[in-house]
Amino acid sequence: MADSIAFTSDRTLWHRIGRIGIYTLLAVFAFYYIMPLIVIVSTSMKDLDEIRTGHLLSLPAQINLDAWTFAWSEACIGVTCTGLKPYFWNSLAMAVPAVLISIMLGAITGYALTKFRFRGANVIFAMILFGCFIPFQVILLPMATSLGYLGVANTIPGLVLVHVVYGLPFTTLFFRNYYVNIPDDLVKAATIDGAGFFTIFWKIMLPLSLPIIVVTIIWQFTQIWNDFLFGASFTSGGNQPVTVALNNLVNTTTGVKRYNVDMAAALMTAAPTLLVYIFAGRYFVRGLTAGAVKG
């Protein structure tokens, strides 16, 4: 009896120590991850004097958004002083069509590969999949040649094309794996009902695809928005995406280094992907696991 009491109190003690350990560790990691963000946000709201005299971790004395407006519309990128604004729109004009087109094509390809199986479908899928493993650097030169040949070098549509081509293996993989779990009988029933390839796709498959569409949007948008290499390689001057412009903004020094402007610009550049995660993130996890467990 005495033994068992000693045992239980012993156990609760160890349990407590374990809990404290876990929470301490979690707090340390949370701090570690949130710290850079706090520094960036608070620095972007300080003026230069405060940055020079104050401590890196100290909070701004007052909220001052001058650095934000400056980064958005006045900062010099190279020799042009337009702020990030035009480049931000460049990125949007690149990312939105590229995401939509690559998702659309990926969905149709995934649908054809699973529901209209043809001879060699698996070989074609394997070849498409292989595209996921090609490093960006390998295709830079042939892609530059192709863009020149097509007459879209140094244009936003050129970048859209590059990202659509590079995104297709991933979007096809996502949709193919999602559609594999949708019963073939649905397609057979619709065929007998008189629906054709695209009618079945529009009226039946696509309405069932919301979770995987959200997953693919997040994946593709993040990839395309954050891309630096293609933007830096295939565009110059006013056609650059915001990631390249951010780099140039930070590297363009006219006298004093404006840390607050750099931080504000970095936050602006990161904002769209953050927003996409915040608004669609819960679908992300749900979509990734959809079909893994039979409902």
Binding site: P183, D185, L186, K188, A189, A190, I192, K203, I204, P207, L208
Partner: peptide
């Protein structure tokens, strides 16, 4: 012809 499937194959949407 019209067909009835074992899995019913109703359009879920």
């Amino acid at each position: 012809i019209a067909m009835v499937f074992q899995s019913y194959a109703l359009y879920p949407n």
